[in-house]
Design a protein around this nucleic acid. Sequence first.
DNA 1: AGCATCTTCTACGTTACGTAGAAAAAGTAC
DNA 2: GTACTTTTTCTACGTAACGTAGAAGATGCT
Lengths: 128, 128
Amino acid sequence: MASLGELERAVMDLLWAGQEAATANTLRDLLAQSTLRQDGTPGHQGKDLAVTTVLTVLSRLERKGLVERERGTRPHRYQAVSSRADHTAELMHEVLGSAPDREAVLARFIGSVTDTEAETLRKLLGNS
Amino acid sequence: MASLGELERAVMDLLWAGQEAATANTLRDLLAQSTLRQDGTPGHQGKDLAVTTVLTVLSRLERKGLVERERGTRPHRYQAVSSRADHTAELMHEVLGSAPDREAVLARFIGSVTDTEAETLRKLLGNS
DNA sequence: AGCATCTTCTACGTTACGTAGAAAAAGTAC
DNA sequence: GTACTTTTTCTACGTAACGTAGAAGATGCT
């Protein structure tokens, strides 16, 4: 239950970016603007989608357990179930768990981590 | 370029398990036996597949850059391009890289790592 | 009751994957 | 080098996920 489609991903990115729950219409509007990230990387191209398209995607994301919907409010509001960091970390664990030789995988993983990241990891592992 | 299908995965597992390059026929035979892992987890059900099926999958894996084929020998021989550990670690990096807030992801990741793994990581990060 | 808004249903095109037969290519045995 | 065997390539079909959206149904305001 790992991979997201392009649009699904774009929607999740928006939900993760905004802190509050959003409506399908809001999301549709946001998706219409081409999003450039701070680093200049193009997040996704501005697509002019029908609201129903967004709703379909949201339903699918809900079914996948990534999105939660408030059915009480009139335009339903949607929000990510877990933060992007949580979700991504979970994914990483899934990937790690897919191999029987986890230690070996970790070794390779650490081998190609940036210096900064290594430093972060040391701190996180609580040893000076 | 991350996800593999069930059969593709089974084939990769066999290639990763065996050290030598294998032929499609060998793989077909191996796939015919239900594989149980040491921990009792069922690796995959023994499926009696046509050789052409295996060949198709191998071609696709080659196209994806996961498998290398020796065209010189008569029954072509196939082998994994990188070890499972390498491949998995690479995947983990891909996942990690998919988030803008890598540090945050790492924090969550470390947060749910087993004690043994944490120990391994400390050693790997080379600080006592 | 009628209208505007929102949601659900249904649907179609595309692509990945599991699966394999038909046909082509390559090597083997006379 | 012709016939046979083995192997590979081509082509193809069914299924499922995803992008996409119209039609129809539900909900609420006036």
